[in-house]
Design a binder for these strands. Structure first.
Lengths: 131, 131
DNA sequence: CAAAACCATTGACAGTGGTCCATGGTTTAT
DNA sequence: ATAAACCATGGACCACTGTCAATGGTTTTG
């Protein structure tokens, strides 16, 4: 498919796709039949873009995601080097998820306290936090 | 305490503390006794910096965190306005946590597949993904 | 067939989250 | 009392993650 359709299906801008492609997260080719310079993206590029979104939510940088996708796609037996990378990212992401979960609880407790007593402070949460 | 001690205790740089302060995430005063311009930070600034870290892990921007802290500290009954803000952030963070968890699973599965068969592709994960 | 819609490439621009440096003052330790 | 360590302020600078605009070519559609 061409960039416009991919953009629409994956809900990202064309420019973002080009940005990712420049950074090696997405690959494309050209149709040799057609005499134009239009890039053709494989169907699974949509899925790749979904993965990129999730990876970003997990806190990975573009460079990280590029590494990950290389490992993930790895048809070639060039693994080994990236073993440590995956392990490191797992540790990192787990920590970030835990921190995020902690903060989510604070958000929820804060809202709950404010719902309960919209006109005064929220000592409850603060006291609970001190436990 | 002074900025150096806070920096050490919270494990952030002095410049980062100043950056946060400029953006309203941290507050400080000066000791009127001392004739200097050194800023004094309250004990709980350490905790605030911890919260900031977690909030960033949850994907909040500095502006968001500023809003949140204002709600959280809210001694004043100026709540109401921020009710919707908290709700919105909760929804947002939950979604991000789920996406992050999804990606973490991919990471784990990819590593597992690579551990199992370091020299060939990782069709298992791919096939599982297609379910 | 002409306009509208699409595409590629290049490079400038923007917002975010810091970091660094220069300058000059203050405190602490030797 | 002097050097080392600390502090404040201001502004320049940085990496990252896009976004936009200009230019010129291609396809689709009415």
């Amino acid at each position: 498919m061409r960039i416009g359709e991919l953009a629409k299906r994956a809900k990202v801008s064309r420019d973002t796709i080009r940005f990712y492609e420049r950074h090696g997260l997405i690959r494309s080719g050209v149709d040799p039949e057609a005499g134009n310079s239009y890039r053709i993206y494989p169907e699974d590029a949509v899925l790749t873009l979904d993965v990129i979104r999730d990876a970003q939510a997990a806190g990975l940088s573009i460079a990280d995601i590029s590494m990950f996708l290389a490992q993930f796609m790895a048809q070639s037996p060039e693994a080994e080097a990236g073993q440590g990378f995956l392990e490191a990212k797992i540790v990192e992401v787990r920590a970030r998820q835990e921190a995020g979960a902690r903060f989510l609880q604070m958000l929820e407790q804060t809202k709950a306290a404010l719902d309960r007593a919209p006109q005064d402070g929220l000592d409850e949460v603060t006291r609970r936090g001190e436990a």
